[in-house]
Amino acid sequence: MPTTSHPSFIHATLAVVRKDLTAEFRSRELLSAMLVFSLLVILIFNFALELNVKERQSVTAGVLWTTFAFAGTLGLNRSMAVEKDRGCLDGLLLAPVDRAAIYFGKVISNLAFMFMVEAFVLPIYAALYNVNLFHPGLLLVILLGSIGYTTVGTLLASMTVQARTRDVLLPILLFPVAIPVLLSAVKASTGFLNGADMAEIWPPLNLLIVYDLIFTAVAFMVFDNVVEE
């Protein structure tokens, strides 16, 4: 007979992350789609825009965040669809754990996939556009922007996964809600890439931090209601 103890929040969160990573590294369905898609987006921009060196610098943040946002949506949709397809979302929700732990587990794994895509895109973009992207400030913006995007994206994906039109519904719901995070991320990234004064960079950076905190708190409070019928 099994010996059971109440599973802690952290143990449950880590169990979800471990499960997601193991399944993904085995199937590579989600990551390969995200990586190929991001590569195509930056290649299309590269050939379509035909920019000189100065112009390249000015569009870099926009192109990067467009790539991250579209690839991220692809990943968010797939990551929740995997839970829904064999009824696994019910399996997760039946576990005697705080449901916020399930949400944070999904956020961490989605964030891990997003970071992998970003780590893939940055050097390729730097090589193709001949732009130096290895600026600590830019990496901080990518970290904060990805957290914000994934936090709200995972919450909305867990809502839309119930719908038949989930593939279409997620971007329609997500992009309007993620506008503040995307605009702030583009503005702060451009600031760091152009070597702007910190006084100019702080407002979008602060907005990113506040957005991350607010949506983490909102998701913590509402996830249980979002997934329950």
Partner: peptide, 16 residues
């Protein structure tokens, strides 16, 4: 095995 291990962790089973 991995499926059952995952659910065992979610149910806090120690001797899984």
């Amino acid at each position: 095995q991995e499926n059952l291990e995952f659910y065992a962790r979610m149910y806090g089973i120690t001797n899984y």
